[in-house]
Amino acid sequence: MFAPASGLGVFDRESGERQLALEYLAEAWNEAEEDGVQTGSLAHASLFAALATLVKLHGDEAAADLVAMLPDRIRSGEYNLDKILQ
């Protein structure tokens, strides 16, 4: 199950509205899993929806620039919900 309250680091301090949005998404995610939707399918659909929205709001180049930064952020553990932040 997706638990938004643990290990979000910078994200949960950045914006109350973003935290609220994440809580809504976590609720929908958990309901979908309870209905039998596989986690991998949810992740892929979520990434597609997020990227399509970023492209619509900011354009192809800005979205591509953001995605280009993701490998380093992923490797540094920014998206690891199991990582303990100190």
Rank of each mutant, 00 (worst) to 15 (best):
F2T: 07
A3W: 06
P4Q: 01
P4W: 00
P4C: 01
S6T: 09
S6K: 07
S6A: 10
G7W: 02
L8N: 09
L8S: 05
V10R: 14
V10G: 04
F11R: 02
F11D: 01
F11W: 05
D12R: 11
E17Q: 05
E17K: 00
E17Y: 03
Q19T: 12
Q19A: 09
L20D: 07
A21Q: 10
L22T: 07
L22Q: 08
E23M: 10
E23P: 04
Y24C: 09
Y24N: 08
Y24L: 05
L25K: 04
E27F: 07
E27T: 15
A28V: 12
A28C: 04
N30T: 14
N30R: 15
N30E: 11
E31R: 15
E31Y: 10
E31F: 12
E31M: 13
E33K: 13
E33R: 15
E34Q: 15
G36Y: 08
G36P: 13
T39P: 06
S41F: 10
A43I: 06
A43G: 03
A43V: 08
H44M: 06
H44C: 02
L47I: 13
F48C: 13
A49Y: 13
L51Q: 14
L51C: 11
L51W: 15
A52M: 06
T53S: 11
L54T: 12
V55S: 03
V55A: 00
V55M: 01
K56A: 09
G59W: 02
G59K: 03
D60F: 15
E61Q: 13
E61T: 14
A62Y: 10
A62E: 15
A64S: 09
A64T: 08
A64V: 04
A64R: 13
D65H: 04
D65M: 03
L66P: 02
L66T: 04
L66W: 07
L66A: 10
V67M: 04
V67A: 11
A68M: 03
A68D: 12
M69S: 10
M69H: 13
M69L: 15
M69C: 10
L70R: 00
P71C: 01
D72T: 09
D72F: 09
I74R: 05
R75L: 11
S76F: 05
S76C: 06
S76M: 04
G77H: 01
G77C: 02
G77N: 04
E78G: 03
E78L: 10
Y79A: 03
N80H: 06
L81I: 05
L81W: 01
D82F: 03
K83W: 01
K83A: 08
I84P: 00
